[in-house]
Amino acid sequence: MIDAMDKAAGLSPDDALFAARRFRPEFVQGAEECRLSVLQPANDQGLAPNLRVALARRMAALNGDPVLMAEYDVQLAQLGPTEQLLALAQGETDLNEPLATIVRHVDLITLTPKKAEASHIALLVKAGLNNPQIVALSELIAFVNFQTRVAAGLRLMRST
């Protein structure tokens, strides 16, 4: 069965790389469980699925990944996005709070994690995020940065 990572990497069941990926069923299943845990969690901690997918779309763009951008665009369209969330997904920075603070954080941690400081977490607190939301947001950011790298690596393998 084709999963989200195969789709992102452009793999089909007759590719040698599709089979090579299955040499590690732990990675295949584990990555899918992780995807569900950050994008469709049973308990969303008050960060709604459409916000999560909109942020994922934004981070796919920051990582220069048109395949994942298109995939998240499709998912977002099915989740009844508001104008604000559509703008957020497209990379807009002029947003209402707490979205404006959230996207500043998302952009910083995606592009320059090295620059992260205590003050950045304080800004999330000031914008009204509680501790479970700060952790859930951090895991979502981290997951999309994982996903885009695995997909990028697999695409390079496929092309060589």
Partner: peptide
């Protein structure tokens, strides 16, 4: 070989994840 390269891609990528937790949520 392909399996080793796949393992390496995952090892690097999972730290694209872990680093964004550890270095972001604390010091």
């Amino acid at each position: 070989d392909d399996c080793e390269v796949i393992d390496l891609i995952h090892a690097i990528s999972i730290f694209g994840w872990a680093n964004r937790l550890m270095h972001v949520l604390g010091h």
